[in-house]
Amino acid sequence: MAPRTPTETIERFNHAFVHHDPAALDGLIAEDCVMEAIQPAPDGARYEGREACLTFWLALAEDHSSQFEDEEIVVMGDRATISWRYRFGSGPADYVRGVNVMRVRDGQVVEALGYSKTGGEIPLAAE
């Protein structure tokens, strides 16, 4: 099997959250992965290593009480941005918009930095 391109890696990563498919994360996370979540304010939590990042992301992908919608995915070389909307309720204002700044190496995610447009706390299943 040929190694995944950065575009294939990012598309599969995003698919896990949009379609609540945690199995899509299998083999996508590098041992030295670093992830920064959007909460708690002001800097978010930092997760280091495959197991820590994967544990967070598996819980988020499995959470059927919320929904990610991608707005735009841009991949340039080993870098990518995923602009998203995260719905956490049924009300018209029960969502937040944000972006993940990603880095891929050898078909695996090595860095994911999350940023959002919010001033308060939002319910995230994994936190």
Rank of each mutant, 00 (worst) to 15 (best):
A2T: 13
P3Q: 15
R4T: 05
T5C: 06
T7N: 04
E8G: 00
T9F: 01
R12H: 02
F13T: 04
F13L: 07
H15F: 08
H15S: 11
H15G: 05
F17E: 00
H19F: 08
D21G: 09
A24T: 11
L25Q: 03
G27F: 03
I29Y: 07
V34K: 06
E36N: 14
E36G: 09
A37R: 03
I38K: 01
Q39L: 14
A41E: 09
A41M: 14
P42Y: 09
G44S: 11
G44R: 07
R46K: 15
Y47Q: 07
Y47V: 08
G49A: 10
R50K: 15
E51A: 15
E51L: 13
A52F: 04
C53S: 12
L58M: 12
A59Q: 12
L60C: 10
L60P: 00
L60Y: 03
H64C: 06
H64G: 00
H64F: 05
S66V: 14
S66G: 09
S66W: 06
S66K: 07
E69Y: 06
D70P: 07
D70A: 05
E72G: 04
I73H: 01
V74Q: 06
V75G: 02
M76L: 13
M76I: 12
D78R: 04
D78E: 12
A80H: 01
S83V: 07
W84M: 00
W84A: 00
R87S: 08
R87V: 02
F88T: 04
G89Y: 10
S90I: 11
G91K: 15
G91C: 11
G91L: 12
A93E: 14
A93Y: 10
Y95W: 14
V96P: 01
V96Q: 02
V96D: 03
V96R: 02
G98M: 05
G98L: 04
V99Y: 04
V99T: 11
N100P: 03
N100L: 07
N100V: 05
V101E: 09
V101L: 15
M102T: 03
M102G: 01
R103N: 07
V104Q: 00
V104A: 05
D106A: 14
G107T: 09
Q108I: 04
Q108V: 11
Q108A: 11
V109I: 15
E111K: 01
L113P: 02
Y115S: 04
Y115E: 01
Y115F: 12
S116D: 08
K117M: 09
E121H: 12
E121L: 09
E121R: 10
P123L: 10
P123E: 13
L124Y: 05
A125Y: 09
A125K: 12
A126C: 15
A126P: 10
E127N: 06
E127I: 08
E127F: 13
E127H: 13
